[in-house]
Design a protein around this nucleic acid. Sequence first.
DNA 1: GTGAAAGCGCTAACAG
DNA 2: CTGTTAGCGCTTTCAC
Lengths: 329, 329
Amino acid sequence: MRRATIRDVAAAAGVSIGTASKALNGQGKLRAETRERVANAAQQLGFAPNTLAQALLAGRSFTVGLITTDSFGRFSIPVMLGAEDALGTGQISVFMCDTRDDPDREQRYIEMLSARRVDGLIVTGRRIEPRPPVRVAPSIPVVYAMTQPADGGAPAVLPDDESGGRAAAGHLLGIGRRRIAHITGPERFLCARLRARGFAAALSEAGTEPCGDILYGEWSERWGREAAGQLLAGRPDAIFCGSDQIARGVADTLRAVGRRVPEDVALVGFDNWAPMALGALPSLTSVDMCLEEVGRIAAGHLLAAIGGEHPHGVHTVPCRLVVRESSAA
Amino acid sequence: MRRATIRDVAAAAGVSIGTASKALNGQGKLRAETRERVANAAQQLGFAPNTLAQALLAGRSFTVGLITTDSFGRFSIPVMLGAEDALGTGQISVFMCDTRDDPDREQRYIEMLSARRVDGLIVTGRRIEPRPPVRVAPSIPVVYAMTQPADGGAPAVLPDDESGGRAAAGHLLGIGRRRIAHITGPERFLCARLRARGFAAALSEAGTEPCGDILYGEWSERWGREAAGQLLAGRPDAIFCGSDQIARGVADTLRAVGRRVPEDVALVGFDNWAPMALGALPSLTSVDMCLEEVGRIAAGHLLAAIGGEHPHGVHTVPCRLVVRESSAA
DNA sequence: GTGAAAGCGCTAACAG
DNA sequence: CTGTTAGCGCTTTCAC
């Protein structure tokens, strides 16, 4: 059975389609009785306006494209959820596009979205490093989340990794640790450098400094295990790790050599990745980047841009420390 | 600057819009020279047809809705990726809808998608248990992936958990183990029961039986640690775990009591969740549910249904065993 | 071969 | 207060 159109509703209510339209949208001046009659007819027929027709007329589609280079991985998902949340309440639907980090694929998506007359674009990724900007008509607003355009042309929302490093250091100082080491991912990652910088700055302000060199390596448990071994001689009483995975590796090594967590060595991870942080023994204190918030804010900027404003520049979202057993006082 | 419409193209090429349309779509009979002129004009103007207008006319939108109850979690993501992949090549775009497991929210999404005239719906979840079917006009085809409708009214694509249990058992038998135990998640999970059934069946066919009772508990590392302790007295030479997280907990306990993996006890996990399975020491053999394949197949069924076929029933996708160090021969 | 016209479903401006 | 009309951008008959 064909879906009911406004024509059917009008006929059923015994009015013209113009009147039906007004009644359904609460426009113009109509008798209350007429409105009701139309509403009832619509109800009976299970009428729902064809969004495509409305969009064609309005010149906008009430949709946005969400482009990720991250295959909807661990970092882009929360961003997406936050964005979808903020947009959904505004009746905007989201097209999901996974570029698989392939520029051609990305370009095809952009063209497709543009043909679908999306009202805007959110571009997200797994790294905060500047990336080549998406090539899209200037009439379509773009906001970057958890990544940023190399040309700074469009607004970007990023987690504040430096504040995350500060928070971790502050917390460990607060529970009385003074010999605090830092093991993190590859130095080529901007976020690793920023976290390390925040960490070192906080220690410095407290009149101390990192215990041993900052160890850059990989984001893996294996690296955590290895790096922890290198640090042991320095007798740290706390280790701030650049990811929860690294922290788990560190915990493994500490256990293997009989150092207790948190009594002998307190541990703080990064990402607050629930399965990793909660599964660890003891459970892991971790820095949460509040990625949902990143997504929500990005969506907010996009809505503003769609509304005609011109948001710009980089907006950072502070991190939040979640304290668990691995750094209990 | 306004986007070019077919009108602009027609004007630039000095033809009527009807002709322009035909030229652009390779329809009707036109002089080659005309086609070319139109193509050039379109090129110059950067013309791309308005999908909304095409959709309105065609009566379909070339979009599908992807509904998940799983907040795009670990299980639904690969399914989504597979589905998006299969649909994208057919020029179908995907609306993402996260219901947060809230029926009201789900219903709102369904209505929205239906107003947007989606060509079909994929419903996915984190569990294979039958769920209340989505309430949507019968004219819109629906396919379930990684979940199934309680009324069996629409086709469903599920991983074959039972075959996964069989594969794990077969592999452990193959490397010469005979005292094989099983620790898994809550018994109320259908997938836990199915995996256990496949596991027990394979052992039985090999003339043996599970070492000790099958231990149902939680999907957590903590439960793995605890359950392993309970099993030790039975001296198993292999443990099949219902999830990679459980397997990691088991590995922790084995290490704590000095049992070597895989020499003394071989370990097989389930999910093949890369960060868990690869981060483990030793790396974890695991059963992979091939969720991308589940998504791809579901999308295939949906395309068939959109094309007028009537796929139905439950389709299962076999699991794949990925061998790593924890069960090296 | 090409152009004119109708119409997809809807809204908004203007008559009446 | 309600009906008629034009038109969003496009495709598809049907004349010429």
